[in-house]
Amino acid sequence: SADYSSLTVVQLKDLLTKRNLSVGGLKNELVQRLIKDDEESKGE
């Protein structure tokens, strides 16, 4: 998976916004949300 932890919070929020995901929470939560979304989209 992508190394989201190396991105800035601003970059993470931009990715979340593009996916229509919540941008609330700490950086670690944003990273986990993106990883979870990646895993769910692979399952389709």
Rank of each mutant, 00 (worst) to 15 (best):
Q11D: 07
D14N: 09
R33W: 00
N20Y: 05
S22L: 07
G25V: 01
V10L: 11
K13A: 06
Q11E: 14
D38E: 05
D37G: 06
T8N: 09
I35A: 07
E39C: 10
E40P: 06
N20D: 07
L15T: 04
D37L: 05
L12W: 00
D3V: 06
Q11C: 09
K18Q: 10
N28R: 09
G24Y: 06
Q32I: 09
A2Q: 13
V23M: 07
S41H: 15
E39Y: 11
L30E: 01
T8E: 07
G24R: 12
R19N: 03
V23N: 09
V10Q: 15
E40Y: 11
Q11S: 06
V23A: 10
Q32R: 10
R19S: 02
R19E: 03
E40T: 12
L12C: 02
R19A: 03
G25W: 01
N20I: 04
D38K: 03
L26I: 10
Q11N: 04
S41E: 10
K36M: 11
D14G: 07
N20A: 07
T8M: 03
L34A: 02
G24S: 15
K18I: 09
E40H: 12
D14L: 07
K13V: 11
L30P: 01
L15K: 05
L12R: 00
L30Q: 03
D14W: 07
L16T: 02
R19L: 03
K27E: 05
S22H: 11
K18R: 08
G24I: 15
S6N: 14
K42I: 11
Q32N: 11
S6H: 13
E44W: 11
S1D: 12
L26G: 15
E29I: 06
S5A: 14
D37T: 04
K36Y: 08
L30V: 01
L12V: 03
S6Y: 08
D3T: 06
L34T: 02
S22V: 07
K42A: 12
L26A: 14
D3L: 07
K36F: 08
V10H: 12
L21N: 02
D37E: 05
E29V: 07
E39W: 11
L26D: 15
S22G: 09
K18L: 07
E29H: 06
D14M: 07
N20V: 03
D14Q: 09
S6Q: 14
L21M: 06
E39F: 11
T8I: 02
L12T: 00
E39V: 10
N28H: 15
L12E: 01
N28Q: 13
Q11T: 06
L15E: 10
R33L: 04
K27D: 04
T17G: 10
S6I: 07
D3W: 11
Q11H: 05
I35M: 10
D3C: 13
K13G: 04
S1F: 13
S1C: 14
E40R: 14
D37F: 12
V9L: 09
L34K: 01
Y4K: 02
L26M: 12
T17N: 12
L26V: 11
I35Q: 09
V31G: 01
E29D: 13
G24H: 15
N20W: 03
I35E: 08
D37C: 08
K27R: 10
D38W: 05
S6C: 10
K13I: 14
Q11K: 06
L12K: 00
T8P: 06
E39K: 10
Y4P: 02
G24K: 15
L7R: 01
V31I: 15
A2V: 15
I35F: 05
D14S: 07
V23E: 07
L26Y: 07
L12N: 00
V23K: 08
S5I: 09
D14I: 09
S5E: 15
K42P: 08
S6E: 13
E40F: 10
T17M: 13
R33F: 02
E29M: 05
K42G: 11
V31A: 05
L7G: 02
L21P: 01
V23F: 05
L30W: 05
T17R: 15
R19K: 05
V23Q: 08
E29Q: 08
L7I: 04
N28T: 11
V31M: 08
L7F: 04
K36V: 08
E44D: 12
S5D: 15
A2P: 15
L30K: 01
T8W: 00
L12G: 00
I35P: 01
E29L: 05
Q11A: 08
L16Q: 01
L34D: 01
G24T: 15
L16I: 04
Q32M: 09
N28A: 14
G43N: 13
D37V: 04
L30C: 04
L34Y: 00
L34Q: 01
K27I: 09
G25T: 02
L7Y: 04
V9N: 06
